[in-house]
Amino acid sequence: MIKTLGLRLLASLVLLIAVPTVTFWLQAVTPGNVAQQILGIGASKEAVAQLNHQLGLDRPVWQRYLDWLGGFFHGDLGHSYVTGDSVANTLGGRVGVSLSLIIGALVVFSIVGVLLGILSTSGNRVWGRVIDVVSTAGIAIPNFWLGVLLIGVFAVQLNLLPATGYVPPEQDAGAWIASLVLPVVALAFAGITGVAKQTRDQMLVSLASPYARSLRANGASEASLIFRHALRNASGPIITVLGLIFVGALSGSVVVENIFVLPGLGSQAVLSTTQRDLPVIQGIAVYFTIIVVVVNVVIDVVNTILNPKARTA
């Protein structure tokens, strides 16, 4: 078991370096003159060449990559093309905001989704259809549209929650939570329904399996079959889906942060895109990769613990 986990950890470290490498090279080899983009179409050739040189963009790609890599291992993620600030500084203060949002969403869609899924299992067929319809609606409603609607109803009409803005927890815990309610709902909504559906499907598969049949015939209680056996056997696939939905939520957070004007990585990403500020975008890629890799490792660990066959694989 330790050996399997050790290998996964190693693979994760490789990913941690490989992914930012890929993103770096993607942006390095894509055609398009960055300095030109920043200065605009009307800029003179000399101004463009000067900016290119200033930003170090006229050096060979390999050299730029190695420089970046070196900096990466020291925690130095380069400097913004626009402000000249260190990327790490620009982003450091924003990580907490994004994590609050994303982890908040993870907690909400995991718990609510799994609970709904289990509930619909022990019920009857009607519940099943309800979940099917709700989950289709849940995934179909775009998170940005939902976000705006939530603002319209809860902030503008009912004045219950703030429409935009973020309050750090150390400043005012209550306001912090209040500022996160609507964004988390907007982000988690689709996830809840996806998780509920997967939970229900996996549990039904479990409950129809030969071992469930044997246990039931030999006297095991229905409650035990659902909460002990089915849940345990379904947990592997459920957790895997949680991971997938989480990665999707990462993408969704970029949009949600923009709607609710949360000063996180996502809103910075959009801003930097319009500004063609590539080092900042690359820095965000690194942070996101770290989050994804950490989550994948946690999922692997949990799966290995839950699935006895995987321990020796």
Partner: peptide
């Protein structure tokens, strides 16, 4: 495939838009 799945897709998309106007 695992590598591609670990890439934060949204960021790559943003980069693409940044680089291709």
């Amino acid at each position: 495939t695992e590598l591609v799945m670990a890439i934060p897709g949204i960021v790559v998309l943003l980069m693409t838009y940044a680089l291709t106007a």
